[in-house]
Design a protein around this nucleic acid. Structure first.
Lengths: 174, 174
DNA sequence: TTTACTGTACCATCCGGACGGTATAGTCAA
DNA sequence: TTGACTATACCGTCCGGATGGTACAGTAAA
């Protein structure tokens, strides 16, 4: 193994392409160029474009699950989730673009993501005494995430931080 | 004018294509077939694919704005927005897929949508005494919308209705 | 020697868009 | 009222370029 992280570089490059050009312009060629790899190289790691999309999504879900798990010591799942959301780097936020790319290509690819969200929601439900309020906070966080994802959010980054702080605070109060 | 609503049929067909096949497969041909039109016919109404996307988005924004305006008698903008969200037909919910399609093609197309959201938020901010809470409710509604949009929502439609009821109730309390 | 690539060449298909043509509806002067 | 003209609303075809995918030969580190 000369460099085990070429695969990750390809994944990161794919997200950058989506961010800059839109999911329609996520082509194997574009990803290869971005990653400093050849088309053959990309196809070596991912058998097809679909496979690349799956890889992007797997990555997103796995990191998400790991983050929640890692934080879940004293806090509730929801609090952990909200807290971690605040700590993410831009690159990690960018990872959510995998959703858009996958949805653009084929909505069926989202099935694992749907299942993941179902599990997260089940956990939150199991832990919380006020499920309705917890759900609202969860949804607000998702709304914020999606709005940012589509670059639809007119708030400044300071405002975003403040909103996230508020969400965390309310999550603690439940 | 032989039939002035062909344009609308094309717009509706485009959304169906996106829903079924993903935004990547939104092609002028596919839309034409769906709408029972020819490719030339589609290009008559929309000069280019970009123009079609713009049309889809304009439609979405316009309807959204009109609905809020129409309802804004006694209620706050937020309450009006949440209430209307509950009344929407599936077809109208589907309309939000225009966002995905536009983002997939070219993120820049979303600029008018971003401005629209900015205005909505400004209105909510101007009206509300508890802006933070209003914002959270707004975001939760958006989160719900996006989750449904991507078919990522594991909730049943009854649960969704209940959540929306809760959001409206809380909006009244502010 | 195997693993992990690069690079090139190539094919089939899809797609956006241009173009030419057609049919209907409305306008308006004689 | 009729004929000439124009605008609107399409249809069908064709083309060039982009794209996904394959095949294969070479290379270099582990």
């Amino acid at each position: 193994m000369r460099s085990n992280n070429k695969r990750n570089e390809i994944l990161a490059a794919a997200l950058q392409v989506v961010q800059e050009s839109g999911a329609n312009h996520l082509t194997i060629d574009a990803v290869a160029n971005r990653a400093g790899a050849s088309k053959g190289g990309v196809l070596y790691h991912f058998k097809s474009k679909r496979d690349l999309l799956r890889g992007m999504l797997d990555n997103l879900i796995e990191n998400n699950a790991r983050r929640i798990e890692a934080r879940k010591s004293g806090d509730s799942s929801l609090a952990a989730l909200l807290h971690e959301e605040n700590q993410l780097t831009d690159a990690e936020h960018l990872a959510s673009l995998a959703l858009v790319a996958a949805c653009a290509e084929d909505p069926e690819l989202l099935t694992p993501a749907r299942e993941h969200i179902g599990e997260v929601l089940a956990q939150i439900s199991a832990e919380s005494s006020d499920y309705d309020q917890a759900l609202i906070l969860f949804l607000a966080n998702e709304g914020l995430r999606f709005l940012n994802l589509f670059a639809l959010n007119p708030m400044s980054s300071a405002e975003v931080k403040e909103v996230r702080r508020r969400l965390r605070q309310k999550a603690m109060e439940i």
